[in-house]
Amino acid sequence: MFNLDWKRLGITAGLSLTLVAAGCGSSEEEASTDTSGGEDSEKASYGEQLDYTITGIEAGAGVVAASQKAVEEYESLAGWEVATSSSGAMATALGDAIENEEPIVVTGWSPHWKFAKYDLKYLKDPKGVFGEAEQIKTMVRQGLEEDKPNAYKILDAFQWTGEDIENVMLEINDGVAPEEAAKAWIEENQDKVSSWTEGTETVDGTEVELVYVNWDTEIASTNVVAEVLKQQGFDVTITPLNNGPMWEAVAEGEVAGMVAAWLPATHGDLYAEYKDSLVDLGENLEGAKVGLVVPSYMDVDSIEDLQPKE
Rank of each mutant, 00 (worst) to 15 (best):
Ala272Ile: 02
Gly143Lys: 02
Glu102Lys: 08
Glu171Ile: 01
Ser87Asn: 08
Ser16Trp: 11
Met298Val: 08
Gly25Cys: 14
Val64Asn: 12
Ala83Thr: 04
Gly47Glu: 06
Val279Thr: 05
Pro178Asp: 13
Lys124Ile: 04
Asp51Ala: 15
Gln159Met: 13
Glu145Met: 11
Ile11Thr: 10
Ala89Leu: 12
Leu170Arg: 00
Glu102Val: 02
Val293Gly: 06
Val208Gln: 02
Leu4His: 12
Gln49Val: 13
Lys289Pro: 00
Leu281Phe: 10
Ala151Trp: 02
Gln231Arg: 06
Ala151Met: 07
Ala78Tyr: 07
Val82Asn: 01
Val259Met: 09
Thr53Cys: 15
Val193His: 04
Leu17Pro: 00
Asp204Gly: 08
Gln142Thr: 11
Val300Lys: 01
Asp174Thr: 02
Ser45Asn: 15
Thr33Ala: 15
Leu144Glu: 03
Phe234Gln: 04
Ala65Gln: 02
Asn223Gln: 10
Thr202Gln: 12
Glu179Asp: 12
Leu155Gln: 00
Val228Glu: 05
Asn214Ile: 09
Asp305Tyr: 05
Ser195Ala: 15
Ser16Ala: 15
Asp40Gln: 13
Glu283Cys: 04
Pro126Thr: 03
Ile54Tyr: 05
Leu292Phe: 14
Leu17Asn: 09
Glu102Pro: 00
Glu132Pro: 03
Pro103Arg: 01
Leu94Cys: 11
Lys69Ala: 15
Lys43Phe: 13
His112Met: 12
Asn167Trp: 03
Ala157Ile: 03
Tyr52Gly: 11
Asp156Ala: 15
Asn100Gly: 10
Ala133Asn: 08
Gly282Val: 09
Ser86His: 05
Ala83Pro: 00
Thr202Asn: 12
Asn214Met: 13
Asp96Cys: 09
Ser36Gln: 11
Asp280Phe: 08
Gln190Trp: 03
Gln231His: 04
Val168Trp: 05
Met1Ile: 13
Ala83Asp: 12
Ala83His: 04
Ala91Gly: 06
Ala61Pro: 00
Ser67Thr: 12
Glu99Ala: 15
Ile165Cys: 11
Asp119Phe: 07
Val176Pro: 01
Asn173Thr: 02
Lys7Leu: 15
Ile238Gly: 06
Ala44Cys: 14
Lys192Ile: 14
Trp185Thr: 01
Leu123Tyr: 03
Asp156Ser: 15
Ala184Ser: 10
Ala97Phe: 07
Lys309Cys: 14
Lys124Cys: 10
Val224Pro: 02
Gly282Trp: 09
Ile104Thr: 01
Ile11Gly: 12
Ala44Gln: 10
Trp215Val: 07
Leu210His: 05
Pro178Gly: 09
Ala22Phe: 13
Val106Lys: 01
Lys43Ile: 09
Ala133Trp: 02
Asn242Ile: 06
Leu15His: 05
Val259His: 01
Ser85Lys: 02
Val176Ala: 12
Thr202Ala: 13
Gln159Leu: 13
Glu286Ile: 10
Gly233Thr: 08
Gly25Leu: 14
Thr84Gln: 07
Glu207Arg: 03
Gln190Thr: 10
Glu187Tyr: 06
Thr18Met: 14
Trp113Asn: 03
Asp216Glu: 11
Lys183Ser: 15
Thr202Trp: 07
Val64Gly: 09
Val176Glu: 10
Asp164Pro: 05
Ala249Val: 09
Met169Pro: 00
Lys137Arg: 09
Ala70Thr: 02
Lys69Tyr: 09
Glu28Asp: 15
